[in-house]
């Protein structure tokens, strides 16, 4: 034997899954949503998406290369996903410098200060988004109306989101049945022809992405289903109790960022719990918090806050909620 044999512990084979493949799987699942946002918001969507992705990846590269002096791992695709998700949470006409600042907070503060991929307790894209929402409230809450592919970037006509219409209306003492006439029809909401952040408008595109993620086994059903289910249940109870001041479940699910949040943001590997039991608890927490913030809070939309709040409980859930082990409680008959 001239060549030395390799010796290692079993297993000697490895599945073909890699972090990179998983991340690019998420990117593929986001493609329908990106296409939908380009269709509805035009050039602004392309510019915003490109700006967020480029700034997130560049910032991660700069931090790893020059501040941490560690091997650069931007090829794993996690910064790309963060950039895309950040972009999809923004209005399409937001100034570029704000996107760069948001990316710096997302990657620099929310991700790299905790030790990079795998160590951040809060979803980086959402931290970036919430930072922007608080810092630039007027830019972040005036959305362009979905004027179609030809929409320009900065000069887009702005319009309110269905959630904002309802929130304002309730404050002014209008009843839900009156307000329902002011908002787009359910069909328009499913397609995405409504005002809002780039990624949250088209329900159908998000659901296509969800099916792809499930098919590729990138995520499990637990979190999205429990977020949407708990939100639907909670709002149904209120709606049945008093349909005059509370909107129905279908409106709550289709409006705002619920689907984007439930499918892509809440399921972020790093910041979500790891076993099915806690996944469902986490999902229900997000659903109910979202409803509470929307109905009784001062913001019209609460998905990002709800997810960030539940992110904080994840370490606790991972420590105290344990799966039932094989052979733990035995009922042999």
């Amino acid at each position: 034997m001239n060549n030395q044999l390799n010796v290692s512990l079993s297993p000697h084979i490895h599945g073909r899954e890699t972090t990179q493949k998983l991340m690019f799987g998420v990117v593929v699942a986001l493609i329908p949503t990106i296409i939908a946002s380009v269709i509805f918001f035009g050039a602004g969507a392309i510019i915003t998406t490109a700006a967020a992705v480029i700034s997130c990846v560049t910032i991660e590269y700069l931090i790893q290369r020059f501040m941490l002096r560690k091997p650069v791992s931007i090829t794993d695709g996690s910064a790309l996903v963060t950039g895309l998700l950040l972009a999809l949470n923004l209005p399409s006409n937001i100034p570029l410098y704000m996107i760069v600042i948001g990316s710096m907070v997302a990657i620099g503060v929310a991700k790299m200060t905790f030790g990079g991929l795998g160590n951040n307790p809060f979803n980086p894209a959402l931290v970036g988004r919430v930072f922007m929402l608080i810092s630039f409230p007027s830019h972040m809450t005036t959305w362009p109306a979905p004027a179609g592919f030809a929409t320009g970037y900065i000069d887009a006509v702005t319009g309110a989101t269905p959630l904002a219409i309802i929130k304002e209306g309730i404050k002014n003492g209008e009843s839900i049945s009156e307000l329902m006439l002011k908002i787009p029809s359910t069909a328009e909401m499913i397609l995405g022809k409504i005002g809002g952040s780039m990624g949250e408008v088209s329900a159908i595109a998000l659901i296509i992405g969800f099916i792809y993620l499930l098919y590729k086994k990138i995520i499990t059903w637990h979190i999205p289903v429990s977020v949407i289910g708990s939100l639907a249940l909670f709002t149904s109870i209120l709606w049945i109790a008093n349909p005059d001041i509370y909107a129905g479940p279908s409106f709550h699910i289709l409006s705002g960022g619920v689907l984007l949040g439930a499918i892509f943001m809440a399921t972020d590997y790093v910041t979500s719990p790891m076993n099915p039991k806690s996944m469902i608890l986490y999902g229900c927490g997000i659903g109910i918090l979202t409803a509470i913030i929307r109905i009784w809070g001062s913001f019209p939309e609460g998905v990002s806050f709800a997810i960030l709040i539940m992110n904080a409980f994840v370490p606790l859930m991972n420590t105290y909620i344990k799966p039932k082990r094989f052979g733990e409680e035995v009922k042999n008959g």
Binding site: Q4, L5, N6, V7, S8, L9
Partner: peptide
């Protein structure tokens, strides 16, 4: 002289539990 190549976690304890070494 080395006779094999150990491919795994850099830890004496783990390598010791596996085999007699490189």
């Amino acid at each position: 002289p080395k006779t094999t190549r150990y491919d795994g976690v850099v830890s004496c304890q783990i390598q010791h539990n596996l085999y007699l070494g490189e």
